[in-house]
Simulated scan of single mutants.
Amino acid sequence: MASSSSHSDIPVSSSLSRNLDVFVSFKSSDTRDNIVDHLFTAFSPQEISTYKYDPTVPVDKSIVHTLIKAIKDSQISLLIFSENYADSYLCLEELACIMKCKDERGLIVMPVFYHVDPKDVQKLTGKYGEALEKHELENKDKVESWKKALVDASSIAGWEVNHIANGNESRYIKEIVETILNRLNRL
């Protein structure tokens, strides 16, 4: 769950669960009122614990520390790559932390390509390439690690929502939740 580069659309709750099942990284303006809302609704009856933002809390770059703690407390990270995901400083910081936790402690990473071509993410082209060029101006020291994280994450087998159940959102939400439940049960 991440915000735009203006940091105005993603607030964070101040309290965290100890052992979260799933941390969802997403670009709020692209996904909050559709796939992400449906996922959180589907997680609830299954008692899948997730990290949720509090919309009343102001967002700034200091929130990264809270997000990193939530990622480290999670067993699975669900990456919702959407059209404007790479525009967000917070999304990219989350992603870098998620991939580091994958390498260091075996965090399970599950990408979802939400109306984006996985090749654009992996090859850093299209909107992803444009976003990274813009980040070069303000965050040059971080861009290389973000690029690596994007390439590595997009190389993991995931879901292309346009190719699951002919894009039927309720069906692919069900498939994602069932896969998460199966992975959690194995843990």
Rank of each mutant, 00 (worst) to 15 (best):
N185D: 08
R32M: 01
D141G: 07
S82K: 08
P45C: 05
R105E: 06
A96T: 14
S49I: 00
D9R: 00
T66P: 02
K61T: 15
A42V: 04
T56N: 12
V151T: 14
V161F: 08
K100I: 11
S77M: 07
V22P: 03
H65G: 09
D60V: 13
L95A: 05
P58V: 15
Y53V: 13
V24R: 04
V24P: 01
K119G: 07
A2D: 02
T125N: 06
E83W: 09
S88Y: 08
V177M: 07
E83Q: 12
Y51D: 05
V57I: 14
Q46D: 07
Y53K: 14
P11W: 05
Y172F: 14
A2C: 02
F23H: 01
I71N: 01
L79A: 13
I10W: 02
R186V: 04
C97T: 11
A165V: 07
A131Y: 09
K123G: 07
V109K: 10
P111H: 11
P55C: 11
S8K: 03
H163S: 13
E144F: 10
N19Y: 00
E83V: 09
Y89H: 13
T179K: 14
E138K: 14
D9P: 00
H115L: 11
D73L: 00
K123R: 14
D37M: 02
S154I: 07
A165M: 03
A165D: 06
V12N: 05
Q75H: 13
S88N: 09
S62R: 15
S88C: 10
V24Y: 02
E178A: 10
Y172H: 10
I80C: 13
V177T: 12
L79W: 08
M110I: 13
D103M: 11
V57K: 15
E47V: 05
Y114N: 02
V24E: 05
N182V: 08
S77G: 13
R105Y: 05
K134Y: 09
V24I: 15
A153W: 06
L187W: 10
V64W: 03
I35Q: 01
L150I: 09
S17Y: 00
I176G: 06
K72R: 15
L90W: 15
R105D: 03
P58E: 11
E47H: 05
F26H: 09
L187F: 15
S44V: 14
P111K: 10
H65M: 12
T66I: 13
D54K: 12
L79N: 11
E169F: 01
Y114D: 03
D117W: 06
S8L: 03
S170G: 01
D30H: 01
S170K: 03
S62P: 05
V177Q: 04
V36F: 02
I68C: 11
R32S: 04
Y85K: 04
S4N: 07
M1R: 02
N84G: 11
I71G: 01
Q46C: 14
K142A: 04
H115P: 03
